[in-house]
C-alpha cells in the first residue's frame, strides 16, 4: 500500500542557509509518526515544506499526488492541517471565530455545522467558552484550541509542531491522550514534531530522528527507545 504522505529527498533553505539536506520519509494512512531532532535539525522546516509555507525542492507526495508548491491554501484544502509551533492562533479573535477560520478551507457554515459537535466531544470546555478571546486562554487551552481549529477542517493528515511547548506535564499528557483517541476513533493520521521524546514515542508507532537536515535514524518507537544515541540525546536514561 502506498503511504499517505511521502517525502523524497526534500531540500529547503532560508536565504543562504540550507535547513533540509534531502529528507526522505513516509507516513502511512492511520499512523502516528514522531519526528525528533535537536534544535535546528530541520523538524519545523520539514512540516513547513509539506504545508507549503517554505519553498522546497524534491518531491512531496500526498495521496499519490505531488502537493502544490508554495500554495499553503491548496495544501490545506487537500486535507493537511498544520498546527504550527507557538500555536498561531488569532489571539484577538474569539474561540468560535478561530474555529471558523479552521472550517474556512471546506466551506465554513456547512463544515462547522457538521464538525463542531465532533470537535466539542473532545474539548467540551470550548463550547462553553466560545465567545472568549483566544489570547486570554491559558497556554494549555490555546494549544487545545489550535488543535480543535485544525480538526474542524476534517484533515486526513494532522501535523503538530511541538504541542508540548510551554505546557505543564499534566496538560501534555492530556493533549497526547486526545491525539491517540483521535487516531484510534477516527483513524486520523498524525505527524508530530516533539521534544518530549518520551511522550511522543509513547503515542507514535514509528519515529524519525533528524540531524542537520537529514534523517539519521528511523524505526519503530520501541526500537528507538533501545537505541543508545536516542536514549542519550532524547530520553535521558
Amino acid at each position: 500500500m502506498s503511504p499517505l504522505l511521502e517525502l523524497r529527498r526534500v531540500e529547503a533553505r532560508y536565504g543562504p542557509i540550507k535547513a533540509l539536506h534531502g529528507v526522505s520519509l513516509t507516513v502511512a494512512d492511520g499512523e502516528i509518526v514522531a519526528l525528533l531532532g535537536a534544535n535546528g535539525a530541520g523538524k519545523t522546516t520539514t512540516l513547513r515544506a509539506v504545508s507549503g509555507t517554505v519553498r522546497h525542492t524534491g518531491e512531496i507526495v500526498f495521496e499519490g499526488k505531488q502537493i502544490a508548491r508554495g500554495k499553503p491554501d491548496a495544501v490545506a484544502r487537500a486535507g493537511i492541517a498544520h498546527v504550527p509551533e507557538g500555536r498561531g492562533l488569532f489571539t484577538q479573535l474569539s474561540v468560535w471565530e478561530n474555529l471558523r477560520m479552521g472550517a474556512y478551507v471546506r466551506g465554513e457554515r456547512r463544515t462547522l455545522r457538521a464538525e463542531a459537535p465532533r470537535v466539542f466531544k473532545y474539548f467540551p470546555w470550548l463550547e462553553r467558552r466560545r465567545d472568549q478571546q483566544a489570547g486570554t486562554l491559558s497556554g494549555g487551552e490555546q494549544q487545545m484550541l489550535a488543535l480543535a481549529r485544525a480538526l474542524v477542517g476534517r484533515p486526513r493528515l494532522l501535523m503538530l509542531d511541538e504541542p508540548s511547548l510551554g505546557l505543564a506535564p499534566t496538560v501534555v499528557q492530556e493533549i497526547f491522550r486526545i491525539v491517540k483517541e483521535l487516531n484510534a476513533d477516527d483513524g486520523l493520521t498524525v505527524l508530530v514534531v516533539e521534544q518530549n521524546a518520551n511522550v511522543a514515542l509513547d503515542a507514535a508507532a514509528r519515529a524519525y530522528v533528524l540531524e542537520v537536515g537529514q534523517v539519521a535514524i528511523e524505526g519503530q518507537s520501541a526500537e528507538l527507545r533501545r537505541h543508545e544515541g536516542v536514549r542519550k540525546s532524547y530520553l535521558g536514561y
Partner: peptide
C-alpha cells in the same frame, strides 16, 4: 521564562 523551549534532552543538559 521557559528557557528550555525547543531543546532536546541533551541540549537541556
Amino acid at each position: 521564562d521557559e528557557p528550555a523551549g525547543g531543546l532536546n534532552h541533551e541540549e537541556v543538559g
